[in-house]
Design a binder for these strands. Structure first.
Length: 568
RNA sequence: GGCCUUAUCGUCUAGCGGUUAGGACGGCGCCCUCUCACGGCGCAAACUCGGGUUCGAGUCCCGAUAAGGUCACCA
């Protein structure tokens, strides 16, 4: 068989250059010793999974901590999955969570192109080389042929796949091949595997440790019938020429590792280091499963933006999942930037973790409590502008009406917005406990925070009064307080009045006395305060009531008290 | 089903032959407190099950079980 002739007949790409050219074009990177080159290689489906962030963070940390390079490569070899604008989505959503690339798709870089479809020539050059060496061959099998083989194998409980005696096209004669070609039959290029499944090797995985890998014996497809490489082939070539030193990827790739090992070997490339991380799971009834794009909204990175989780909080939570000693570090260094944490690939968990939204919320609350009211205002405004309801947008920005359009947005509009900002900042300072000894931790995410402060806005104040006392008692308390309420009272004078109303209605004013003999009273001051709180805010859990009434002002406070009385 | 991987409180995990099995989230309780919170203190809560090896096993070995991954011209 004339392999050179066959290679030319099979792959007709005029751009193909001699192999040395590629080695020259993409030289070894000059980096400090120990520096790692890592990458993220998603397919452009337009959907960003939380797992993408997870693995991106791991790769990014390792690269940047070691003084290396972190780049983005787009695996667009599957036409069907490609979505317009997907790369933009990748950049934007990862950037939002603080992950930045040094080079790659839509960025500069000497090792591109970073879109696999634009790299056809290199793949073709190497496919050709393998054919010349007799290490790859054309396969004319149709889907039906393959199906038949598979059926036969499952019936006879044989290892499924295209290998050995089942690889029908592996030993086609020269005549057969050219006849098929002349007949215009479609073909793929397959690797002529040299491996033996009975041979096992131990392999060092950077996260799993010592694992055993069986040799590959599958004659895997390296070039599809449209001349585009499969993932496996593109991976070997790209990670070689982009000079990747470490591949951290999902554990779903572990089972195809033997293929990759063989591919690197036949291509004469040095194998990078690998680390296979576990996927984030969720409990669904009785069973655990991967977070699913279709079933679980929280699988989408977008979800966290829509909910208004602070990116730092999500990042922090991801880190707790990513490195087992991270939380301990965080506890000791609560104010230190996350990037100063010494990330270690060896500290990655070996088994899949359950996604814990409660824990995320806790981390989120703690993080939100670190902001000041101005920062919080900006954060919430940004969220509301994009995701809020019209009413919520109105908390921050006055609506632009017809007159504005005619006369331009004037001074009045600017002043109105400044007024809203001032009001909001007062509200937020109260809700966050700014100025107090300890911050409150009520805010989890922007969506919830904006909803939580809705009672400060008459347009969205729609209370459902749920008292724990009978109507008559509530009425007496509310009326009694409304009569003596004075906006000028300071906090303690105000509270004395609450106590007075409590006493007037038989409630205990002294907690010690109450605790000593609870049966003697219908309740205590705290119960009275709760009634007032529900009447003015519709909620039983709010920050300091006195301040709320101060912010609301006398008129609105009394209006709410009266509305509550009327509703009884 | 074959192959690979994993197995400690409800959850995330520490542990690398000798520990009262540690921490965090959540739960519960107490304290602080003029109301709601924050905070502080405390309690309950785990080594999947068998066999070995060893003076000694959560830790090493072998099985069983369970869970996850994977078996494409998808990545």
């Amino acid at each position: 068989m004339d392999w050179n002739k066959l290679a030319d007949a099979l792959i007709k790409d005029e751009n193909v250059k001699p192999l040395e050219e590629y080695e020259k074009q993409y030289p070894e990177r000059t980096l400090e010793k120990g520096a790692q080159v890592t990458r993220l290689a998603p397919s452009p489906t337009g959907f960003m999974h939380i797992g993408n962030l997870y693995v991106a963070l791991a790769n990014e940390r390792i690269a940047h901590q070691s003084g290396g390079v972190f780049y983005l490569r787009i695996e667009d070899t599957d036409e069907k999955r490609k979505v317009e604008g997907a790369v933009d989505v990748i950049h934007k959503s990862l950037k939002y969570f603080g992950v930045k690339f040094d080079e790659g798709a839509d960025l500069c870089g000497e090792y591109g192109p970073y879109y696999q479809r634009q790299r056809a020539e290199i793949y073709h050059a190497y496919a050709k080389e393998l054919i010349r060496q007799g290490l790859a061959y054309p396969c004319f099998c149709t889907e039906e042929d393959l199906e038949k083989i598979r059926e036969h194998q499952t019936e006879n409980k044989l290892l499924p796949g295209y290998y050995g005696e089942f690889a029908k096209c592996r030993d086609l004669t020269e005549e057969e091949i050219y006849a098929n070609l002349a007949a215009g039959k479609k073909y793929v290029i397959r690797l002529r595997s040299q491996g033996d499944v009975n041979v096992k090797h131990t392999f060092r995985d950077e996260v799993k440790g010592e694992i055993t890998v069986t040799e590959n014996n599958q004659d895997v497809v390296i070039l599809k019938s449209d001349g585009i490489p499969t993932y496996h082939f593109a991976h070997a070539i790209d990670d070689h020429f982009m000079r990747t030193t470490l591949v951290i990827r999902g554990e779903e790739w572990l089972s195809s590792l033997p293929i990759h090992i063989e591919l690197f070997k036949v291509l004469g490339f040095r194998l990078p280091k690998y680390g296979h991380n576990c996927s984030i799971q969720k409990i669904d009834g009785e069973t655990r499963r991967k977070l699913s794009k279709r079933k679980d909204p929280e699988a989408s990175l977008n979800y966290y933006r829509e909910q208004g989780y602070h990116p730092e909080a999500v990042r922090t939570y991801m880190m707790t999942l990513l490195n087992s000693n991270f939380e301990e570090w965080l506890l000791k260094n609560p104010e230190t930037p996350l990037d100063e944490f010494k990330y270690s690939i060896g500290k990655m968990g070996k088994s899949g973790a359950l996604f814990d939204i409660v824990k995320l919320n806790d981390i989120s609350k703690t993080y939100m409590a670190k902001l000041d009211e101005k920062e919080m205002y900006l954060f919430l405004k940004e969220w509301a502008d994009e995701f809020g309801t019209d009413t919520q947008k109105g908390y921050f920005t006055a609506p632009i009406d017809f007159e504005h359009i005619l006369n331009g947005v004037g001074e009045e509009f600017v002043q109105e917005n400044a007024k809203r900002e001032e009001y909001l900042c007062k509200v937020l300072a109260l809700c966050m406990g700014v100025g107090g000894k300890k911050r409150r931790k009520d805010f989890v995410c922007a969506k919830q925070a904006v909803e939580m402060i809705s009672y400060f806005f008459d347009e969205s104040f729609a209370p459902v009064y749920e008292y724990r006392f009978v109507k008559g008692t509530v009425r007496k308390v509310l009326q009694g307080f409304a009569e003596i309420y004075d906006e000028q009272d300071d906090n303690s004078a105000w509270f004395d009045k609450v106590k007075k109303v409590a006493g007037d209605n038989g409630f205990a004013t002294d907690m010690k006395a109450y605790k000593a003999n609870p049966e003697a009273y219908p309740g205590n001051v705290s119960d009275v305060a709760e009634m007032l709180r529900i009447a003015t805010t519709g909620l039983s859990n709010t920050p300091d009531l006195w301040t709320i009434m101060q912010i609301l002002g006398k008129e609105r406070t009394l209006a709410r008290l009266n509305a509550a009385i009327n509703a009884l």
